[in-house]
Design a protein around this nucleic acid. Structure first.
Lengths: 216, 216
DNA sequence: CACAAATTAAAACAATTGTTTCATACAAGC
DNA sequence: GCTTGTATGAAACAATTGTTTTAATTTGTG
């Protein structure tokens, strides 16, 4: 045994359960996943989930919290970096769009993707309340930053466009049934847009244009 | 008995089950809804769902089909009307954006809202396959129409922006945790944007700007 | 009315679910 | 070494689930 940490093995199983639960919840939903599936994948005993989390509902809450933190942190970091680089000037709309889109796009791959998918499974009010609470400072800072760059728009209009931008970004992430996969196109065309970098640029382009839309 | 339709009562219970299933599936998901909850709300016997639909899975498929048709029909009608009014000219980007947003916004209220929410509960592949199949002609026509008005863009770029526009629209519809509800604003400001007409205009404005975004 | 089919009702079934219990193994501290 | 607290394992529990079965009831038809 390299590490003499007394809680090494214990923490490992708790984390294995949390990871397995996150991955399964993300793909089959909270109600569609059984504790036996979770403990089987985590290579743990069925009673372990009750030992560490008490109940399934509390396990769900734990996975939600575990999924929210990295996402909020990554987006906050990108936004702060964007504001810091421009300081004392204001960032451009494009830079703000990048600060919104880029960290989200990094969550479209790898294990972070399941964190994102897990948050999109949330329907119950007490679950959304947790997410809202953790996202609130991020959203407020983002709307305020946008408002500083677009002072001619009301704050409600800014917030609305910010919601639209998030919707557009998330839609391109989940890819449940994107229209662009239906369109018959040449392999060359398809490959161009399926490149991550190309998608990122197109998304930033769309969002940025929406932000800058003139009031009618 | 006013109507001598022999199947009157039979069809009624089948439809009651279908409606109750749609509403419950929309809010609690497929796995989170039991047949007993459905038959209870439908004021029908538990065995009736098996009598009319055979199995729960087939009931789910029926609710999905029942939800897809009105949505596709409404959007196709709006698009055809848009194209017809402009004929033989091409519609404007704004008109196309309206043809996308307006029929969707009418589904944000009433019983149609549950049809929309039901479709957003879909995760399994065979369920999405049904939805994709029914939406395919609509999506293709929409992308082709956009491409005619924006000939300088590749079809893949058009399809991507169309996906973004759908995402922005749906995000503003579900309202699970919109940022605009977090932002502190005056009642006057809030009322302005919470008006359906105002929201519709803002959404069309955002989507239209995204469509017209210049290639970078 | 009588008969057949269609529909509804009630009960039971087998499987699965989250949860609990109890026993065992393991490590640390006195 | 023994004890205590922690962790794991296996089994069982009670409740819920979708489904089936069987009987009763209604409805249409001759």
């Amino acid at each position: 045994m390299p590490t003499p940490d007394p809680f090494e093995h214990a923490i490992e199983t708790r984390d294995r359960i949390l990871s397995a639960a996150r991955d399964l919840f993300a793909t089959t939903g909270f109600n569609g996943t059984t504790l036996r599936e979770i403990t089987e994948r985590a290579d743990a005993n069925l009673a372990a989930v009750n030992y560490y989390f008490g109940t399934k509902e509390r396990l769900i809450l734990s996975t939600i919290e575990e999924a929210v933190f990295p996402l909020v942190a990554a987006r906050l970091k990108a936004l702060h970096k964007c504001l810091g680089l421009a300081n004392p000037m204001l960032p451009t709309i494009d830079q703000l769009a990048q600060a919104l889109v880029r960290p989200l796009l990094t969550f479209s791959k790898g294990e972070n993707r399941n964190r994102l998918l897990l948050l999109m499974q949330i329907r119950e009010d007490n679950h959304t309340a947790i997410v809202v609470k953790h996202f609130k400072p991020l959203h407020e800072l983002f709307v305020n930053s946008l408002n500083a760059v677009l002072p001619h728009l009301s704050k409600s209009e800014i917030a609305f466009r910010y919601d639209c931008a998030r919707g557009a970004t998330l839609q391109s992430l989940v890819e449940l049934a994107p229209a662009r996969k239906l369109v018959t196109m040449s392999d060359y065309e398809r490959s161009k847009l399926d490149t991550d970098k190309r998608r990122e640029a197109a998304l930033i382009n769309f969002v940025s244009a929406g932000f800058q839309a003139s009031v009618d």
